[in-house]
Amino acid sequence: MERQASPFAVLVQKEIGDYIYSWKFLILLGIILLTAIGSLITILSIIKDYAANIDLDNSFLFLNLFTASDGNLPPFITIISFLGPIMGLALGFDVINVERNRGTISRVLAQPLPRDYFINSKFVAALLVIGVSIFSIGFLIMGFSILTLGIYPTLDELLRIIFFLIFTCFYIAFWLNLGILFSTIFHQSATSALAGLAVWLFYTVFYSMLMNLIGNAIYDNQMDLGVFLTRMNRLSPIGLYNELTTILLTPSIRTTTALTFEQLYGALPSTLPFSQSLMLVWPHICGLIAATFICFAIAYLIFMREEIRA
């Protein structure tokens, strides 16, 4: 006797199926895989130089696979920070409005299931799909490197990479939820896609420009300006994610703020253990997860209050 599945599981299962068979997902995955492989190949060609400079205090060679670049192709973390939002938005921008426009939403909601199952299942399914793809790519890169280079990660490095992948999922989930939010607000999927891209473009291109402009107008002192820019950068999900991943994958970064000479005096120039790096980025993590859930909460509220009309 087959166990009967809960409606939520059925919905999630259907959503995952829809994603996996959809062209948009395959295309996205293709782009990310290609660029990841591209950056990996570059890394493999220049890693010798890195290996030559290695010393006993800074032996995190494996992490360079994700952070190093020869200047032609950006490193993996930059690619993900750039393409992750596109992936999140692409998976989220049409989840609600397409169902509404096709009239499938009223058919599903006429079945005996709580209304929030509908939006929750979309989120959970997309998150699972994102998680599986990000982890596959990450592990593929690791596996490929182990095979070709013959070096393997230390436990510390492995943990850093796994947490990097987990936070990457949250980062993409933020953009996914932004997409879901726009898909509940805008009834046309094209509008919703464009709105999502506009936010992405704003943060990638215009945000730092704008902050520079404001900062220069307020502060004369270069030091104050720097502090201001760092703080403002953390208000942008992209900036937050970049800082988070850079710190996590670069153990030699010891602080997120500028230090005075007094503070530096007597400090040993060593790397941080994983737990200390994690502590350093803990506020970033909280901020990123909070932003993710705020987006989803707004989308949830709008969806629950909205009229279901065929």
């Binding site: 096709r102 499938t104 939403i105 006429a110 079945q111 065929a310």
Partner: peptide, 15 residues
């Protein structure tokens, strides 16, 4: 909803 079936005027299916 367990005992009522509803066919909306613009019925939508997963195409």
């Amino acid at each position: 909803k367990r005992i009522v079936g509803y066919l909306p005027d613009q019925v939508g299916f997963y195409e």
